[in-house]
């Protein structure tokens, strides 16, 4: 955990010193793919990225389908959510590109299973789509804002909703 986050921290630092228009960079985001769509999570929430370890299912009828179970992340028990089923997409078999992104907010950690982790990019004010009309986007309810980059749009997720708003997640299914 320490190594990963400090690595990011270092990146931020070195970038900031070299960048001329540094006032424009608001934060950084880790992007990942689910199907063809690119999503992002703001870096401060990301703890680490691991593969897909052995998942222990929690056999309780109340636990919704998208919570796949619990995993052991260095002696910490962390629940994992499959982002595909969370976004109402069909689950696919895990392959070598499938990753678990461990995110944390207020001491609550959750692992998000995604198809593929892409890159860390700078979030610039100019790239944020202004008051976007989200009504056409299927998974809009989780999206905090949209980035318009040269290589396409990236949907930045609202971690608070993913961690706390289980009902919203259930309604998405």
């Amino acid at each position: 955990m320490a190594t990963t986050s400090s690595l990011f921290a270092q990146n931020v630092k070195s970038d900031k010193t070299t960048r001329v228009e540094k006032e424009e960079e608001i934060t950084k985001a880790l992007t990942f793919a689910i199907g063809d769509q690119v999503y992002g999570i703001e870096i401060p929430y990301v703890v680490e990225i691991i593969g897909v370890p052995k998942i222990t299912r929690v056999p309780c009828a109340e636990v919704p389908y998208f919570i796949k179970g619990i995993i052991n992340v260095r002696s910490k028990v962390v629940p994992v959510v499959n982002m595909r089923s969370c976004f109402g997409k069909e689950e696919v078999e895990y392959n070598e590109k499938t990753c678990t992104i461990i995110v944390a907010l207020n001491d609550i950690s959750v692992g998000l299973i995604v198809d593929e982790v892409l890159e860390v990019l700078s979030v610039m004010q100019k790239n944020i789509a202004k008051t976007p009309d989200l009504s056409n986007v299927n998974e809009n309810k989780f999206i905090e804002y949209i980035l318009e980059m040269n290589d396409g749009i990236k949907l930045i997720l609202d971690i608070k909703k993913i961690i706390f708003d289980h009902d919203l997640m259930i309604s998405m299914m």
């Binding site: 929690v58 309780c60 109340e62 636990v63 919570i67 619990i70 028990v77 962390v78 629940p79 001491d107 609550i108 950690s109 959750v110 961690i163 289980h166």
Partner: peptide
Amino acid sequence: FPSYLSRY
């Protein structure tokens, strides 16, 4: 169990 699951 992780607190994420405590509502269940």
